[in-house]
Each structure stands twice: as C-alpha cells, then as structure tokens.
Design a protein around this nucleic acid. Structure first.
Lengths: 357, 357
DNA sequence: TTGTAAGCGTTATCAC
DNA sequence: GTGATAACGCTTACAA
C-alpha cells in the first residue's frame, strides 16, 4: 500500500526544500533547469498529484458545488444534475449531493453540513415542506456567510440569489391553447396544491389560455390533488380520484395535467371509461420523462429541458464564484452594492405526440 | 457579509488561546467551568461550526464517499444513489458524485480527481467502455493507494474489493420458470451484448431455466441487441428490430427481456401484431422502474431493489473505512493479510403484474 | 487549568 | 536559484 506521495517526501528524497519542489512542479522559472527536470521526473514517476484538501484549505475554496434537491429518483431532478455535472466538470468543479427528501429539517441540516467549508456554493430546489412553512432562514444565513446560492425550478422571490426557472406559465398557456386550437371545448386541469409554486403557475397559465379564448373556467373542471398521491403506494387512490373526477364531468374533451404521472393516469382512466385518445379526449402533460415517451398512446407534453436548466444554473453559480474571486483581490465596495442577481427563464417546448390531434 | 467565525477569532475576542477554545468546545474537562461556559456561549452566539476542510486535512479523512456511475438519468442508478445517501448521512458521511457517461476516460479522470484527497472511498459501477476494454488499472491503483472501493451491479472479478451484486442469474431463472409454469412453450429472450456482465448472467439464467425443464433453447429465439438502441433517438430502430424478431418467430408465447425498455417495447410490438397480453404472449422484464409500473398492461418484472444495493454498498464501504481507522491505530500486520473482501448478493424479487397469467 | 507548538499538504513571501 | 517561514483552521501532545 503506497500512500500518495507528498511534496515533503519528494523534497526529502531529492534533498531539496519543499518550496523548491512546489515551484519546480508549477514550472516556476526561477528554478534551475536541472533541478526542475529532476524534480518533475521524480514527481511523474511517483505519480504526484497535489492534495485537494490542502489546496482547499490554502485557497479557501473547494472547487465543489453543493446540490440540494428534494429527491433523486426523479427524471426531472436527475436530468438537472446531469446538466450541472457536465458544466461543473468542464469548468473544474466537483459536485456533492444532498437530498432533502422534501423535508425541511433535512434540508437545513444538509445545508449547514455542507456550508461548513465543504462547498463554494449551492444549487438547489426547495423542498415542499420548506415551501409550506415558508421558513427560509437557512438560505438567508448561507448567503449572508458569503456562500452564493442558485435556485432552480422551485424558487421563492424573497431570497437574493440567481434563479433558473422554467417558463411554467407560458408552457401551460401553450399547452391549453393547443387543446383549444384542436377543438376542445371542455378542458380540464389536474394540478397540485398551490403552495408548490410551479403548480400555481401552471394553473394560472391554464386560466390565462382559457381567458384569451373567452372560455369561462369552471371550478368543476379543475382537480387539485394532494402530492402524496403521486407516491407509489397511493397510485390506486390517485386513479380513483381521477376516475371520480371524470364521472363528475362527462363532457371533458381535453385535459391538461401538471405532471406526467397525472396525465398518464388520466389516460388510463379514460380508456377504462371507453374514451378514445385523442379522438374523444386529448391529453397534454408537463415534464418530458420516460412515461410520456412510452405511454400508450405516447403523450404530448411540455418539455422543461432539465439538462439546460442544470447547465445554466451551474454557469450562473460558477460565474459568480469566479467574480467573487476577482473582487476579493480588489477588496472594496462590499457595502450596498447591487449584486445583480439574474433570473434566467428556460423556455419550455411543446412536444407533440399521439395523445393530441 | 459575516464570514464564518474561526477558533482563532473567538480566541482573540475572548483573550484566551486557540487551544483553550478548541478544548472548551469539545467539552474537555480540563478546562475551567467558567471559561468553558463563556467560550461555549460565545461560540453559540456566533454560530461557530468547525471547518470541514481543516478537519479533513488534520484527520486525513474527509468523511465523504465518492460515487462513480455511468449515468444518472436512470431509475436503477438513481435508486442506488438514494440508498447510499441515506446510509451515508446516517453514519455522518457526505456523498460526491461523478458521472462516467459510460466512457472509460471520463471514469479514469473522475476517479483520479476524487482520489486526490477529496474522498475516503468509492462506490462505483463500471462503465461499459471500461468493461469492453477490460482495462482496470485505475481501480487497482486507487486501491493500492489505500482507498477502498465497493463495486455494485457491474463488477469484475479480478479486482480486490467488496462487491454488491444483484442475483441476476437466479432472478432470470425465476422469471423464465414463471413463464414455463404458466404454460409458455416458446420463450424468447431479448438481451444485450455479452460484455455487460449482467446481460450475460441474465442470458445464462434463461438458458438454465429452459434446461431444467428440458426445453431445448433455440438460437432463433434469442435476440441480442446493441445497447445504443436504448438511446432515445433510436427507439424506432429498436422497435423495428423487435418487430422483425417477432416476424421471424411466429410462435413466441413467452418473452423475457433483460431490461424494462426492451420489455415494454416488445409489448408495443406485440399489440401491433394483434397479440394479446398475457393471453397470447406473456412478458417479463428486469428492473422495476417507472415504465414497468405504468405500462399497459403493467409489466411483471424482476425487481433489483436498487435502494437496498446502495444501502449495502454504503455499509460495506463505511465499515471498511472505520475498520481501517482502528488498524491505523494499532499500526501492524499490513502485509499479506487477508482483506476479507465480501461479495453481497441482493436477491431479486418477482413482481407479478398484468403481463403474465 | 491554560498556553505553546507541531503537524495535516500546499503556496506565497520573504530572505540569502 | 534555493530555502526558511507563515498561513489556511483545526487538534493534541507537551509544557508551564
């Protein structure tokens, strides 16, 4: 077991000082050609690589990004991670992951854990419980400690940070407009409770599209479901709820669902009720995941481009980190400056498949 | 912007030495009650938390696990990560993620990057390209540097490390037996190229089950597909291949596929050919993902329990890390000892749904 | 009971 | 050209 070799060992072995070794390896030209060659050869032979931890301590930056998300077994979130990872890697950063599991306390603990030096900045999506409590002190504290945050998808206004959001509103408007333009008269909406910002926005988009076409929204055509129904063990309940909804609204000929699970389940129910898709009822979902692609019929959907979101978020964060570096050098105007936080909106895309005409 | 407070600052503020502060905060009882109280109160007020990086450097351990996987937008892998994360968190570890994207060089680079001090050990699943090249020097080097590895799912024999594998072989045997027991006579197999160990094992299981029932395997009933067909942009090719396969084998009444995509696609093709499932043809897949649950009909499948795999892997790794700690203390028998590497087999489970009788 | 100093692995700033 | 020293933040013998 040959432990990694350190500068100290090389120095001792070659009978020079540690600083000479350090300089030789960084190609400092104040080192004599001969010694440099010798040291570099030796280092190469023993496969010397500087220790990241030591560098982190010295430079007071870790070159790693903390990702904090509610759930990882989830197509959208994993796609975002992939986007972050790609950019992070390109720009020399690592990625460390914390899962909140939709719990407020796990989010706080994870954040504090990582904030103690392990990471340079966060990219996160807020847990449902946090959104419900509306307790954002941990974000504020982290930011006030000089650790930048980039929020994506589930964001809140009152935090000063960069944000990357999906254009939920316009995405929904487009989805519903598509349904209207293909002849739907009674368009239903299956959505979540309002405290999840995206659910709210998508609902607003639905209403907006109706309004633009002078269609009066009917409360009975809107089904608000508890998120817990999305859990695997409650799938049957979900199906029953939707079935009941269909029974109460006989004339539904178009359906917009705020996620793909709701959409696919609704399609199941529709078939059960002998409705043909898309002839009798057209369906559009949100989020282009595995289900949408492989459903029967395949599901027309609003794609969120999760990977692009991740890439953007990573760029925003790293840009800010490296900007902070420069400012540290100058060491001034730290007070009251406009931090210039950006909110990037990633446009959605309507992907037409077989569940619409 | 109030930067995190350090021991040094507290010491200065309270006019004591750094070590006094350190000891007071670790409740060392050689510190006077009074000073201890004072220091603790002060630290609490300023929300002092020790810097992880400094601790890592001092202790020469980072309390973080490196996960190296081929792909993250993938139900199985993300489930495993979740399992790892849960245990890691419970036992005080963080989790850092690297994606190989099935590429050998990315795997090597990522591994070397993280091995330079960032992590205490790896949990990984080998990339396809690496399996193809059969070049495992990076694993061997990492291990020889004293960094333990736990491999899961895609493993190779000639590396000395703990392993967690799915019982692919018996899982497949059970799947095919199920088909046989429900009356199938012509059981087809859709599998991948052999170099992916799991594909090979599942194929062997299929053959074994047939043999046990004295059924002669027919080469024409086995379809070996290139993995690249699983990519989204090649889905139509995949479908055509499978359709062709069905055309060439008119009497197929049972089908075992080594992943859920193949299974679901085969079901699509079957319907297209006016075959009823499960009456005319029964189908079983491998991996219990989203597709299986929501396919029409829902897919009978072999569940791999990804989360359990992750949990086991994390336990194995952390156990070994903490064992190493103790041995460091004793400082002996480093030579030629049996490292006692374990291979844990996670049993699969046949989940019966509507695609079988 | 408290302080001093060494050390984890680096780099940067001085000297010589 | 090269070496000693300090510093990053922390813990822990060893002194006092």
């Amino acid at each position: 077991m040959k432990r990694k070799v350190t500068l100290k060992q090389i120095a001792k072995e070659l009978d020079v000082s540690i600083s000479t070794v350090s300089r030789a390896l960084s190609n400092s030209k104040e080192i004599g050609e001969e010694t440099r060659q010798k040291i570099q050869a030796f280092a190469k032979f023993y496969n010397y690589k500087p220790n990241n931890i030591a560098l982190s301590l010295k430079n007071r930056k870790t070159k790693t990004i903390g990702i904090l998300i509610p759930e990882i077994v989830h197509h959208f979130f994993s796609t975002v991670i992939r986007g972050i990872e790609i950019i992070a890697n390109q720009r020399g950063y690592n990625v460390i992951i914390g899962l909140s599991n939709e719990s407020f306390s796990k989010e706080v603990i994870n954040m504090e854990m990582l904030a103690n030096g392990s990471i340079d900045g966060f990219i996160l999506s807020i847990s449902k419980e946090t959104l419900l409590h509306q307790d954002y002190h941990h974000f504020k504290e982290t930011i006030s400690q000089g650790i930048p945050i980039v929020m994506f998808d589930r964001v809140v206004n009152d935090i000063d940070c960069d944000k990357v959001i999906v254009d939920d509103y316009n995405g929904s408007v487009n989805a519903v407009k598509k349904l209207i333009s293909t002849g739907c008269k009674n368009i239903a909406l299956i959505t979540t409770m309002d405290y999840v910002s995206v659910g709210k926005l998508r609902t607003q988009g639905y209403l907006q599209a109706l309004e633009e076409s002078k269609i009066h929204p009917k409360a009975s055509l809107i089904l608000k479901l508890d998120d817990s129904l999305a859990l695997e063990e409650h799938l049957d309940v979900l199906e029953k709820e939707i079935e009941q909804f269909f029974m109460n609204n006989e004339k539904i000929d178009g359906l917009f669902a705020v996620n793909e699970l709701y959409a696919v389940t609704a399609m199941k129910v529709a078939r059960k009720l002998n409705l043909n898709i898309p002839e009798d009822i057209q369906v559009i979902g949100f989020t282009d995941g595995v289900l949408s692609k492989h459903a029967r019929p395949s599901l027309t959907t609003i794609s969120q481009h999760g990977q692009k979101i991740g890439e953007q978020a990573a760029h925003l964060l790293i840009d800010r980190l490296e900007l902070d570096d420069e400012e540290d050098d100058i060491e001034e105007v730290d007070f009251e400056r406009d931090m210039n936080f950006k909110t990037v909106v990633i446009e959605t895309e309507l992907i037409e498949r077989d569940s619409t005409k």
